[in-house]
Amino acid sequence: MRTKAIIKKRPAAPTASVGKTSDPKAVQKLELLILVVNRNKTEFYIDFLHNFEINLHTIMPAHGTAKTEMLEYLGLMDDDKAVIFNIIREDQVANTLAALDEKFHTIRNGKGIAFTVPLTGTIGVAIYQFLSNNRMTTKEAGR
């Protein structure tokens, strides 16, 4: 005798929503935004990045490797750079990079390069909330 299997549709298990979503409390992925700019523009770009919900910046003095002998003789070499590491929420990456690209082309002596590297993990709820600028859950946790 052949029996027909009845497959009941199980209710969806609650899962942590990760990635692009409109839920402000959802877990959002983070990326490392690396910005290389002229050192005298460091403060300008740090202030600019505050507009994109970036809370953590690490600034490292650096210098460029492009060297032209003639420019060196003329004293025109300005190879003092700053490398700025920033942690940014994934949903802010596109806006931020577009805005940075515009600044690279419009600010005098403000040329630079920016790129992102996806993060695979972090640890600590408070640290995550700080890095992702997730103020919604921080308020709730404080109640």
Binding site: E31, V36, G64, T65, A66, T68, L71, V93, A94, L97, A98, L100, D101, F104, H105, K111, G112, I113, A114, F115, T116, V117, P118
Partner: peptide, 17 residues
């Protein structure tokens, strides 16, 4: 791996000067 890049053309222009 790098997921997004901006400013590379100006960067490479400068290095090739």
């Amino acid at each position: 791996p790098v997921s997004n890049v901006v400013g590379l053309s100006t960067y490479s222009d400068k290095t090739e000067e």
